[in-house]
Design a protein around this nucleic acid. Structure first.
Length: 350
DNA sequence: TAACCGTGGCC
DNA sequence: TGGCCAAGGTT
């Protein structure tokens, strides 16, 4: 078993992917470790999110808030705006909570042990192990989607996810070496991301091909098995886009919890089978001849757009006007940016 | 425990 | 083109 993990480390020494938050294996072997703050930030951003999508966001955040103390001192709205487009916005809210907890409860120094990391907001079983292993070289085992797939194939596990998680975790733990656990964690995930991929695994060039039970049995490509998901329903809603005569846009900060929590958006109705109109102010609302469509994790949304131009002294019942000079569609979640894009060209105001 | 929670790329 | 998928956490 030990030999098998060392084989993977040899492979990683040659094939490690380069990432801005990562310290290459040659430097880690010489004793260098990455900044725990940067590792934690990358791991939170990478939750259910591709490396390609994270790269630029990570650089942006590290540029604006280079230390955990800087992030802890940031304005909530600035962090939410910077996170806009990356999705799963509870991560951004928990990111701030976590940064402030590290400053308030841990002297601004990231804890190095898994158990303490687990007590922090937004850090669950995977992220706690990942930060401990990658930032501190602690002998922890990471179990993410990559590792689940690699283990299911390596040991030909047919139990469907998520029921198979404890079994896959036990297999992954048994394989974790005492030497270079941080590199090993990154190596298994790199293997899953580049060789042992979901659809067409490149078994021919896999460092673990010889002992892979799934490859030998011919079952690898179909693993891991997963319990079927249920179909996603369609919900509908109404979005109201009000422009003031001076060009200002009517926006609303959404409630802190739930879908798009804490994000900026256009006021609107509920999203349901039968949405009830809920205009944010009295105005001559016009129906836009275009529907905004967007798919969330668990439902499709079709948004009818109503727009209006209102006087400069108009006072909304909900939301607040944002001046044309400070308004930035990039700071909106994607569904709201779609609404913006559809309506922007049609309005009689620039 | 299972539902909730985004987005963009891929085939 | 639409379902699948990605370095999951919270409730």
């Amino acid at each position: 078993m030990r030999d098998r993990s060392l084989q993977l480390l040899d492979w990683y020494d040659v094939h490690a992917r380069s990432m801005p938050w990562r310290v290459p294996p040659a430097e880690r072997k010489a004793g260098a470790l990455p900044d725990p703050y940067g590792v934690w930030l990358s791991e939170v951003m990478l939750q259910q999110t591709t490396v390609a999508a994270v790269r630029d966001y990570w650089r942006k955040f590290m540029g604006i808030w280079p230390t955990v103390a800087d992030l802890a001192a940031a304005e909530d709205a600035d962090v939410m705006a910077a996170w806009a487009g990356l999705g799963y916005y509870a991560r951004a809210r928990n990111l701030l909570k976590c940064a402030r907890a590290v400053v308030a409860d841990h002297g601004g120094v990231f804890p190095s042990d898994r158990a303490t990391l687990l007590t922090l907001p937004g850090i669950g079983p995977y992220t706690a192990s990942a930060v401990a292993a990658i930032a501190f070289d602690a002998p922890e085992t990471v179990l993410d989607g990559n590792v689940e797939r690699v283990m299911a194939r390596l040991y030909d596990v047919h139990t469907p996810l998520p029921a198979a998680k404890p079994e896959l975790m036990a297999l992954a733990e048994a394989l974790t070496p005492r030497e270079r656990p941080g590199d090993y964690a990154q190596a298994v995930m790199d293997l899953g991301a580049t060789i042992c991929t979901p659809k067409s695994p490149a078994c021919g060039i896999c460092p673990w091909r010889d002992g892979c039970a799934g490859r030998i049995a011919g079952t690898a490509t179909g693993l891991p098995r997963k319990t079927p998901k249920k179909a996603v329903p369609v919900r509908r809603g109404i979005a109201y886009v009000a422009r003031r005569a001076d060009g200002a846009w009517l926006l609303e900060t959404r409630a802190d919890k739930g879908l798009l929590g804490g994000m900026l958006g256009f006021p609107g109705s509920d999203w349901s089978d039968d949405p009830q109109p809920a205009p944010p102010m009295l105005a001559d609302w016009q129906v836009l001849d275009a529907t905004a469509r967007h798919t969330f994790t668990h439902f499709h949304l079709e948004l009818t757009i109503l727009w209006a131009v209102v006087a400069e002294d108009a006072v909304p019942e909900r939301g607040h006007f944002v001046g044309h000079d400070t308004y930035s569609p990039a700071s909106l979640p994607t569904v709201m940016r779609k609404v913006h894009d559809l309506v922007a060209d049609s309005l009689p105001i620039r």
